[in-house]
Lab assay of single mutants.
Amino acid sequence: MATGGRRGAAAAPLLVAVAALLLGAAGHLYPGEVCPGMDIRNNLTRLHELENCSVIEGHLQILLMFKTRPEDFRDLSFPKLIMITDYLLLFRVYGLESLKDLFPNLTVIRGSRLFFNYALVIFEMVHLKELGLYNLMNITRGSVRIEKNNELCYLATIDWSRILDSVEDNYIVLNKDDNEECGDICPGTAKGKTNCPATVINGQFVERCWTHSHCQKVCPTICKSHGCTAEGLCCHSECLGNCSQPDDPTKCVACRNFYLDGRCVETCPPPYYHFQDWRCVNFSFCQDLHHKCKNSRRQGCHQYVIHNNKCIPECPSGYTMNSSNLLCTPCLGPCPKVCHLLEGEKTIDSVTSAQELRGCTVINGSLIINIRGGNNLAAELEANLGLIEEISGYLKIRRSYALVSLSFFRKLRLIRGETLEIGNYSFYALDNQNLRQLWDWSKHNLTITQGKLFFHYNPKLCLSEIHKMEEVSGTKGRQERNDIALKTNGDQASCENELLKFSYIRTSFDKI
């Protein structure tokens, strides 16, 4: 039985969820670079991206490699990797027998973001014989899940209580170790020597080791999670996991709180800001991140802002960003909400898709409305799209047979046209069989910064309504002859009103 693990408890099935942008060198404390989270699957090609990484700022997932063999891993080693800020997950990587050479110096898994409450997941690794993470000293947050690894031993010899604050939620089941077939031998045991430290858990006094050649490092209890030197002297209180010299914040392997210019500090002093819960960055760093993602459509890219001495992905609820200094300031009234469309555009074809934009005031991208039916549609669209004030790209209304009016965009005031449909149009209306009105132009103002209007096959939309939009939106004169079809717009509506004058002759039985 794995020490510190839980057996036999019912657990939810383990679901495996399925960018080499360097964020800056980590400095003297770390020998390499800070790398983003990685999802490495199918083959070993991307694994080489770990070569210079000291910190993975995010998670590391290595999974679904069915053609790899043990010899493929023999020359692979990433000794610079010290810390993973989120979680480490391995799933069905064939041929991998140990992690001792792959990650010989991995010391800390912070667990800032977890995989279903777990910071370390080893699942269905069919050839893994031992973990071998002999320098792993601290899992700051989260638990361990090690399950269905039929060859995995050296679990009962690990004292997880020396690595985690609590072992109650560890789930370590259905491994070879369960069948008591392992016969784990710690260093020196074969020669009758006791080389590794022994600890007591559940009444068992057991030597602690990761492999037959690597003991588990056990520091004096007084050192807590700070770690200790090879001689057993406690590291500085700002260290986490390990250090090369005692009581020196510049000799830590990793930091308990924050890293700044080669030393570990309790908090980031001005003019620095907390970033990702582990390091200090200056304003320029946060500003660069903001600008890199301002026009990016890459998933996970955030326009970072500053709030409460932190550089964070977005302002919290009730705050909006001051564009001059990136500071989050309290909103006066309802907060603006910028919604970034991942692929640059979004099609609204149902109430469900409209709900995804609920509360958005600025759309960074283009909207395509293609709704053919739905219950209580006008009210639903207004509830979900009615706060949109600005669209950076274009607005396209296409084959939306259920629409009679666009009044559900009740606050839309600006279409920038930074991206144009077919390279020309910022407003595009095609084949809307029941569209009769755009907006009530006596109450609604709309500016279209650039781009043209396109109207074709809107049989109940009168040309007068379209011409009014040209005047109000500032697009009059931009359109070419064929942009607004004269014969297919309003051709099934009563669009022309003329005053009919009647004269009559009164007659009676005795007068003409």
Rank of each mutant, 00 (worst) to 15 (best):
L44W: 11
C182G: 05
C215P: 10
R263N: 08
H290Q: 14
K294Y: 13
C255Y: 01
D169T: 13
H212K: 15
Q204H: 08
F258N: 02
R92T: 04
I158L: 12
H212G: 08
N135S: 07
C196G: 09
K294M: 06
G37L: 08
N242S: 09
N43P: 03
T329W: 09
H307S: 11
H290S: 06
V121W: 03
L102C: 02
S143Q: 11
R110H: 04
C235F: 00
M83W: 02
T85C: 08
S213R: 05
L233Q: 11
N43R: 07
N295E: 06
E314P: 08
D178H: 14
A198K: 12
E314F: 01
C328I: 02
I82G: 03
L90R: 00
M83K: 03
I185P: 14
Y87E: 00
V206Q: 14
G227P: 13
L131Q: 02
R208Q: 15
V173Y: 04
N308F: 12
C331N: 13
H214Y: 15
E238Y: 04
L128H: 01
N149Y: 02
G232D: 15
N295D: 11
P31Y: 15
W278R: 02
T320L: 06
D184A: 10
Q204N: 14
R141A: 02
T45C: 03
Y304G: 04
P197A: 07
L155R: 04
F205M: 07
S112K: 13
N135L: 02
L128A: 08
C239H: 00
L120W: 02
V305H: 05
R162V: 10
E168I: 09
F275V: 03
I158P: 05
L106F: 02
H214R: 06
S161I: 05
V144E: 01
N43K: 09
C196V: 13
K129A: 10
S166H: 08
P70F: 07
L29G: 14
F283P: 08
K224Y: 15
E180H: 00
H212P: 07
C264K: 00
C280A: 00
I185A: 02
C209M: 02
N43G: 11
R110C: 09
Q299L: 05
P104I: 01
L99K: 01
F73A: 12
M65P: 02
G241C: 05
P79F: 03
V253Q: 03
G58K: 00
C335F: 06
S324V: 13
C311T: 00
E238P: 01
T157M: 05
R208F: 15
S112D: 15
L50W: 03
E130K: 13
A156G: 11
S317P: 08
P79T: 07
Y319P: 02
F283I: 12
F66G: 09
I201Q: 11
S98Y: 06
L174G: 11
V206H: 04
S296H: 10
A230W: 10
Q299Y: 03
V173L: 15
Y30P: 09
I158G: 04
C234P: 07
L102S: 01
Y304M: 05
L89F: 09
M125Q: 06
M321H: 15
I84K: 00
K224H: 04
A198C: 13
T140M: 09
E71A: 14
E238I: 01
N257L: 03
T157F: 05
A156I: 10
I146G: 01
L89N: 01
F78A: 07
F285W: 06
E49I: 09
Y304F: 14
P269S: 08
W160P: 01
N135Q: 11
I82T: 06
M65C: 03
T320I: 06
V281P: 00
C35D: 00
V200N: 14
G241S: 09
D72S: 08
H236N: 09
N202L: 06
D261A: 08
G142L: 02
V253H: 05
Y87G: 01
R74P: 01
R145E: 02
L174S: 11
V93P: 00
C153L: 02
N42Y: 13
L90Y: 01
N179V: 11
G203E: 11
F285A: 10
H28D: 10
E97V: 13
E124G: 02
R263H: 07
G192K: 15
D165P: 14
I306G: 12
D247V: 08
T199L: 11
N42S: 10
F78W: 03
C153E: 02
P79K: 03
Y319Q: 15
R162A: 14
A190I: 05
H302V: 06
T140F: 07
G192S: 13
P220H: 05
V121H: 05
K80V: 04
H28K: 09
Y273V: 13
K217M: 09
